[in-house]
Design a protein around this nucleic acid. Structure first.
Ligand code: TTP
Ligand code: MG
Length: 509
DNA sequence: GAACAATGATG
DNA sequence: CATCAT
DNA sequence: GTTC
């Protein structure tokens, strides 16, 4: 072959040389997608099918033109897909490809580009506070597909019960982002959640973890998923779950759900694990021993104290409570705490602090000055029990042992009040920020931020942030050293992560 | 094929 | 130690 | 389950 014979064609076919191009499969039909892909490949470029969390050598991200115009939507989509807007990635519309092909040049005109400035601009100027979607059907005792208000906080920002130790977490009015979470996404999520629950209750924790991450990613995803391609493009959603999304899109149904969740074994085991104190091991053991219903369990002689309590309050505990009730419960605890020691700082954490419209329990963080040595928890609990507020203990509360964690059950005074789960944590001032982070969650958020820490030779717990940690697999080979963390912001900073207010910690990092 | 967070309480 | 919890 |  004489290369000189075809110089034109050569040139023409190399217009995308050195281009690593990712096409966002949103608002793009399958055929148009693959058309672009072959065009790019023929042009010497490389199509990336999935953005990797770490090494993105991607040079261009192509969006459908209508998407590029809606820069607000761009922000949502790109951020949910972990695009680092600080890198030199060119974000362009599909027109760019067309024009490049037409002119046989790899042009890089700004007219196609969505500049980073534009993005951050939009983010900052945007201040929508939309009403929260509260969509909970009271009466669903079964599959606990928890409510999910797409974290828009408008009514009650995390209210400090008492100002003291810190300040950065007081004024978190910052409007968070997307609403308009889609109808269909929710339906798929409900199905996937069934599978996640089933896997967890049989002890398949890693499979369940995979599902949870994917579910969380889809919830955080900005728009309606319409294809397999779009689904796999979401980090955390792999081929298997994307196929399930696709199947659901086509049929409104997942065969896997029938297959897995349909069996008596699965249903019973799942029911049992909903009892507080019952996990996969006991649930399955009980099933094998022939137990089938909660009634059966009451006749089971091997129930632990915790499980008896869990059984007694089974229905109430399944339920989630409105924010206002959380506030009422917290007020009771705060009053009692301050009567013991007025210098205590009492603060609501958990899903309440993240702005959720309903909460599964009440998480209260009490910070005490380092010079206070009174056993706070025993005193506090004695009071709360004498007043009849706390009705059951899920952990033994003992004097002398300087206990920090209380798990129990309480009920507000008055008629028709349900029993609610109550968690109280008492920590010294020096651990305030890490404890606040921990108990604010979410659990997935904690796990992902701790993963970041680990990869930086650090370790984050509710007690402290350690640096200089050397690991060999799981084992920590040394003790590292404690890095002072006066505020939540300082923790983010030390980990090299941009600060996120509680409302934006619903999903993983 | 390995890793997937880190810790406390119970028995 | 396994189990269950946050 | 997904990611590296
Ligand atoms: C369950 C769990 C919680 N946590 C932290 C983060 C949670 O936000 C915090 C409180 O735990 P939870 O009260 O179990 O969770 P939550 O408050 O976020 O949600 P819910 O409305 O159902 O109560 O503890 C972990 O770090 N790891 C875990 O496995
Ligand atoms: Mg909670």
């Amino acid at each position: 072959m004489d290369p000189h014979k075809r110089p034109l064609l050569q040139n023409k076919s190399r217009i995308f040389e050195n281009c690593y191009i990712y096409i966002l499969p949103v608002a793009l039909g399958k055929k148009r997608m693959s058309l672009f892909q072959t065009q790019i490949t023929n042009g010497g470029g490389i199509c990336v099918s999935k953005l990797s969390a770490t090494k993105c050598n991607v040079t261009h991200i192509v969006l459908e033109d209508s998407v590029v115009k809606d820069s607000e939507r761009c922000v949502r989509l790109l951020s949910s897909i972990n695009v680092d807007t600080n890198t030199a990635v060119k974000i362009v519309g599909t027109q760019w490809i067309s024009k490049c092909l037409k002119e046989c040049v790899c042009l890089d005109t700004k007219e196609f580009e969505l500049s980073v400035e534009k993005i951050t601009d939009k983010v900052n100027t945007k201040s929508n506070s939309k009403p929260l979607n509260e969509d909970r059907d009271p009466g669903t005792v079964k599959n606990d597909v928890a409510d999910f208000a797409t974290c828009t906080v408008e009514d009650s920002p995390p209210k400090k019960l008492k100002p003291a130790v810190s300040e950065e977490d007081v004024c978190l009015q910052s409007s968070s982002k997307p609403r308009e979470n889609s109808e269909c996404n929710h339906l798929v999520i409900a199905e996937l959640q069934k599978l996640a629950n089933a896997f967890r209750s049989t002890g398949d924790q890693w499979r369940a973890y995979g599902y949870e991450k994917a579910i969380s990613a889809i919830k955080a995803y900005g728009s309606e998923i319409t294809s397999y391609e779009e689904a796999v493009s979401i980090p955390g959603v792999g081929s298997k779950i994307a196929a399930k999304v696709s199947e659901f899109l086509a049929s409104g149904h997942l065969r896997k759900v029938d297959e897995i969740c349909g069996s008596e074994r699965s249903q019973v085991v799942e029911l049992f694990t909903k009892v507080w104190g019952v996990g996969p091991a006991t649930a399955q053991s009980w099933f094998q021993q022939g137990f089938r219903t909660l009634e059966d369990l009451k006749a089971n002689p091997n129930l632990t104290k915790q499980q008896k309590i869990g059984l007694k309050h089974f229905d109430d505990i399944q339920d989630r409570m409105p924010r206002q009730e959380v506030e009422q419960i917290a007020a009771v605890v705060e009053t009692a705490a301050l009567s013991i020691e007025p210098k205590l700082n009492v603060e609501l954490c958990g899903s309440y602090r993240r702005g959720r419209t309903t909460c599964g329990d009440v998480d209260i963080l009490i910070t005490k000055q380092d010079n206070i040595h009174t056993d706070i928890l025993p005193c506090l609990l004695q009071q709360l029990k004498e007043s009849g507020f706390v009705t059951d203990d899920l952990v033994n509360i003992e004097v002398s042992r300087n206990q920090k964690k209380y798990l129990g059950i309480c009920r507000l005074p008055g008629e028709n009040q349900k029993h609610r789960r109550l968690d109280i944590f008492v920590v010294p001032e020096s651990e305030y920020a890490t404890a606040l982070m921990h108990y604010t969650g979410s659990a997935l958020f904690n796990r992902s931020i701790r993963l970041v820490a680990a990869h930086k030779g650090m370790s984050l717990s509710e007690h402290c942030l350690l640096a200089g940690v050397v690991r060999e697999g799981k084992e920590m080979l040394n003790d590292g050293y404690i890095v002072p963390t006066p505020t939540e912001k300082s923790i983010f900073g030390l980990l090299g992560i941009e600060y996120r207010p509680p409302e934006e910690r619903e999903h993983r990092l």
